[in-house]
Write a protein that binds this DNA or RNA. Sequence first.
DNA 1: AGAGAAGCTTACGTTGACGTAAATGGAACG
DNA 2: CGTTCCATTTACGTCAACGTAAGCTTCTCT
Lengths: 140, 140
Amino acid sequence: MTQANEPMTQDTMTIREMCDLFDVTPRTLRFYESKELLFPIREGQKRLFTRRDRARLKLILRGKRFGFSLEEIRQLLDLYYAGDQQATQLSRTLDVAAERLADMERQRAELDLAINDLKSQISLVEDMLTHITGHKDAAE
Amino acid sequence: MTQANEPMTQDTMTIREMCDLFDVTPRTLRFYESKELLFPIREGQKRLFTRRDRARLKLILRGKRFGFSLEEIRQLLDLYYAGDQQATQLSRTLDVAAERLADMERQRAELDLAINDLKSQISLVEDMLTHITGHKDAAE
DNA sequence: AGAGAAGCTTACGTTGACGTAAATGGAACG
DNA sequence: CGTTCCATTTACGTCAACGTAAGCTTCTCT
């Protein structure tokens, strides 16, 4: 095992390194820890983030881009990291995940609708524009 | 006396009728007015919502389902109701809409990824479950 | 006339996801 | 040795999108 504390294989990262890597603030990482989304280990006072934390943070940030709440994300993370859970817990988590999946597919359907609507509106307005400007091309 | 109101063409609605029709609260409608998303006319003190307001509210609620902010929705509404705008305004609005569209398509792509990820995670955990429970079917 | 019901305005409260400031402490540098 | 730089904790501030309560008018029904 290469668990050397020395910098050869740097398995853990400081808060600053994390911030630079993921483009978040220290506040955000501490906040996520307080909400039990991350579990950095401590070296004295200071936090050290493991690759596990990095994997989780990656998923957290992706979840956020869809508008999932941190609480919802926490549940998804539980799913991802549920290797040693009990079967009953697991199947309950599966239910949560299935619901989430249904939500996401609904959302995708609506998103598709909205995309098409927006597209047609855009071309509609483009037509108006060419007409207004004396049916010449309206590009600058 | 049951008021037949004014003409037989009742194309304005009271705040309560609006609330019932769209399942929102009065507070919400007043709030949207204060944010210039709706423009009900006034009969004395009271608000009267036109079909234009109803069309806008419909779009507002749809936009909200995607997680658009009210401010973003306001911009989209400007697009929808830009019939009498200037060409320059219109083309600037088109830019906004094009950006939004790009956002939505990015979001759609990510959502697709996430859906697939989640699906595979789910079946993965399902397999774990059947294994844990002694490779019998793990109903309930 | 009195009691509701419905609407209005004003304004403070709430939740989620952090921002930001203040006070503190160890480490590195010149 | 003092200064600067990170990091930490504690705690109040913020923004969006309303909720909710207080207090006032106005209409309607009995």
